[in-house]
């Protein structure tokens, strides 16, 4: 019972944290309409995860395990692309926090950028969603007796606990002023993107498509175990692993400076634009 609850907590945590960042960001920027996109992406992913569970499990399995894993890696890498683009956009927004933020958000809505939010929510929920579906399916098949409903309830409680964990986590951000808040969430999202990229690379290594180069660069299990609460939290959020391969470390550490440079360029451009156009700062 406790095991079912813990497994579902862990499987749902990542989705809850990433959806949590997006919702918190939208709530604080006063863009409540955009929340619909996030929820749509998350719900779409639940439907897709159930469909994939049905397609890859049971007698009528139509999808091989490898195809499923490749698809998941693809969704992860795609989400990194969308997320990177979002962070650059958010960064530009954060420079102009003022009376015109709402108008800028409206403009973003008009240009369909919030579809990007839906894509990230989709990837985050889909990734662990398939595993959660297959796990719960197993719980029901295995205990085709009176204890199945109780175990399903424990699973639901685990998912609810993950949502509560994410909520508590982002409550901690409430004391930050807006400027700091957007800076912190921006950095956090970059780390999330680097973690998703690393997870996608890890899947491709496990599939035998890529070489890890060096399977274990270091081992920080003495400091933070993967199965501890903090380890699971960091694993879900930024892809923490105690024993990463060299290729994963390289992917993570190449991504961050590349994005740092892109954000710096966005800064330079925004500064020269505001020097040039007094009309914008007056608005």
């Amino acid at each position: 019972m406790i095991e079912t609850l813990l497994i579902m907590w862990r499987e749902s945590l990542e989705a809850a944290l990433i959806v949590g960042i997006l919702l918190t960001y939208l709530a604080r920027s006063g863009e409540r309409a955009g929340m619909r996109y996030v929820w749509a992406g998350a719900l779409g992913a639940v439907v897709a995860a159930v469909a994939m569970g049905v397609a890859s499990n049971g007698a009528a399995a139509r999808l091989g395990p490898d195809a499923q894993e490749v698809l998941q890696a693809g969704v992860l890498l795609l989400a990194v692309g969308v997320l990177s683009w979002m962070v650059v956009w958010m960064h530009r927004n954060a420079r102009q926090i003022g009376g015109d933020l709402r108008r800028r958000a409206d403009r973003a809505l008009a240009t369909g950028r919030l579809v990007g939010l839906a894509a990230i929510a989709f990837a985050a929920v889909f990734r662990e969603g398939v595993e959660a579906v297959l796990f719960l399916w197993g719980v029901v098949v295995q205990r085709a007796d009176a204890s199945a409903p109780a175990l399903l309830a424990a699973g639901a409680a685990g998912a609810a606990l993950a949502a509560a964990t994410a909520w508590l986590f982002f409550r901690g951000f409430a004391f930050l002023n807006l400027q700091t808040f957007f800076r912190v969430t921006g950095i956090l999202l970059l780390l999330v993107a680097a973690g998703l990229l690393t997870a996608g690379v890890n899947k491709l290594i496990g599939l035998g498509y890529l070489s890890p180069i060096e399977p274990q660069v270091w081992n920080t299990a003495w400091l933070l175990r993967d199965d501890s609460v903090l380890g699971a939290l960091l694993g879900a959020l930024i892809g923490y692993r105690s024993r990463p391969s060299l290729l994963e470390v390289l992917a993570f550490s190449t991504y961050l400076p590349a994005m740092g440079w892109a954000l710096h360029r966005a800064d330079v451009a925004a500064r020269s634009a505001s020097e040039r156009g007094p009309a914008r700062s007056a608005a």
């Binding site: 796990f135 496990g206 890890p212 692993r241 024993r243």
Partner: peptide, 30 residues
Amino acid sequence: AVAIEFESFELNRERVVPPGRTVAVYVSGL
């Protein structure tokens, strides 16, 4: 009869295996 998840923190691997299926997990250079 139900899905399992092959997992190892030491090997840094994690793969769900549906019932009755075989999945190849690569490890190297250990």
